[in-house]
């Protein structure tokens, strides 16, 4: 079963879009394995770890963050051209992240309310997951991603197998861990049944409901679960907002949120002074304001 071991070391890049850097930090968090990984992989671009910059081509590129600005939109197409394998990491890159909450609202009104000089802010009307713009080969979910899953991805890459990233519900891991269902025993709303596993069922282990940071799993029956929340005493709009977290923009969470009244909070009232001509937000390739239609398939 010998395979050639003299192949050149794969070139790995880490690229950041609109995000907090927490996911790429998980690579540095692999303390026990980091040196061995660096021994087998050429990490050629990793702004969190080194000031040394290198462009592609990459064998693998890990992309963190949502596409939120015109510059990032150009960048992601560039990265796609340079990468053999493009892996999105984290809730922002895979689902749009918390910044995608703006997709339900008037982007210009927020920009005008937050910035003294909104005309200097170049941003797209919507923050979108990377897969809405370019082909994605694999994704690591979560906010942040799970270090074990990252190591599994790297190991699978090096050994030539498929990474073991199950698409089951958080519940399966929760039950294997012997946790008691917080929804059944305490009436705490939990997104575990519709959320993809990978975190090790962290939140239910601390008597909290899952808030879905790994995003929807396959066959996520959000209609049934939200009816359950209503049965437990939430109003329909409260039930919908429980889904409006880091991955709320991913279908089918997105459709449910829209159907049940949208995301929390209010849109600021625009200032009286109109923005200078030409400084209006760049239109994203997919229409804003109708989240149910925007974006690609999740």
């Amino acid at each position: 079963m010998a395979r050639a071991s003299t192949t050149p070391r794969p070139r790995l890049g880490v690229v950041k879009l609109a995000s907090c850097d927490g996911c790429q930090l998980m690579l540095l968090n692999l303390e026990d394995e980091l040196l061995a990984i660096a021994d087998r992989i050429d990490i050629v671009e990793f702004p969190e770890a080194t000031t040394h910059r290198s462009s592609g081509p990459y064998d693998v590129v890990l992309v963190e963050g949502a596409v939120s600005t015109p510059e990032q939109l150009e960048q992601i197409h560039e990265v796609r051209r340079e990468a053999k394998l493009l892996v999105t990491i984290g809730a922002c890159a895979t689902a749009g992240g918390i910044q995608a909450m703006r997709n339900w609202r008037d982007h210009d009104a927020f920009r005008a309310a937050v910035y003294a000089h909104p005309e200097y802010i170049e941003s797209l009307a919507t923050a979108q997951p990377v897969a809405d713009y370019v082909k994605v080969d694999a994704e690591l979910r979560g906010c942040p991603i799970n270090a074990g899953q990252l190591l599994e991805l790297v190991t699978a890459l090096l050994t030539g197998r498929r990474p073991d990233l199950p698409d089951e519900a958080v519940c399966a891991a929760c039950k294997r861990a012997g946790r008691v269902c917080v929804m059944v025993s305490q009436g705490i709303p939990c997104l575990g049944p519709v959320t993809m596993t990978g975190c090790g069922a962290l939140c239910p282990g601390f008597d909290r409901g899952c808030y879905g940071c790994f995003g929807p799993r396959e066959s996520a029956n959000v209609d049934s679960l939200s009816r359950g929340f209503v049965h437990m005493g939430r109003t329909p709009s409260e039930a919908g907002r429980l889904f409006a977290g880091f991955t709320g923009y991913a279908e089918p969470f997105r459709g449910l949120i829209t159907e049940l009244g949208g995301v929390p909070g209010t849109t600021p009232v625009p200032r009286a002074t109109a923005a200078p001509e030409g400084a209006a937000g760049h239109a994203a390739p997919t229409p804003a304001g109708s989240p149910a239609q925007a974006g690609g398939q999740r």
Partner: peptide, 8 residues
């Protein structure tokens, strides 16, 4: 329509 296929 009701089943969450959650494995519980």
């Amino acid at each position: 329509e009701r089943c969450l296929s959650c494995t519980n």
